[in-house]
């Protein structure tokens, strides 16, 4: 399980990515992160919730209450235009970050740790 500072800086990016297609709720997001990363990264509940709150106050996401077909009421989050813009910025930033860091990574190690 990864818990480095680098990945923590990209929590917002992951959450926004998962909200791009459709609104979602807390557990579903954390589950999809776990699945997409093959359980290499598990986001803690408190981390997820504080990310929601922070992005909500920044206007990147909006919350609304809804329920699934089986009727359990949940707080859903959906991405805003602001959020999409922010997501794009984060992606571009990552591209640069990756380019920069890759200069310093030895090839074999890169394969090994991929």
């Amino acid at each position: 399980m990864i818990s480095s500072d680098v990945i923590r800086g990209y929590n917002d990016t992951m959450i926004l990515y998962l909200l791009l297609d459709e609104p979602s709720y807390g557990y579903e997001i954390s589950k999809r992160i776990r699945e997409l990363t093959h359980e290499k990264y598990v986001m803690k509940e408190t981390t997820l919730y504080s990310a929601f709150k922070r992005m909500e106050s920044n206007g990147y996401i909006e919350s609304f209450s809804g329920s699934e077909t089986n009727g359990k009421p949940r707080t859903y989050y959906k991405i805003t235009q602001e959020g999409k813009k922010y997501y794009k910025e984060r992606c571009e930033e990552w591209e640069i970050t990756r380019e920069v860091i890759e200069k310093f990574i030895v090839e074999e190690n890169n394969h090994e740790y991929n």
Partner: peptide, 16 residues
Amino acid sequence: RAKKELLAMMEDKYNE
């Protein structure tokens, strides 16, 4: 609200 939301997430995870 935070408590309620956290509980909901934990409950979902627990059930699954």
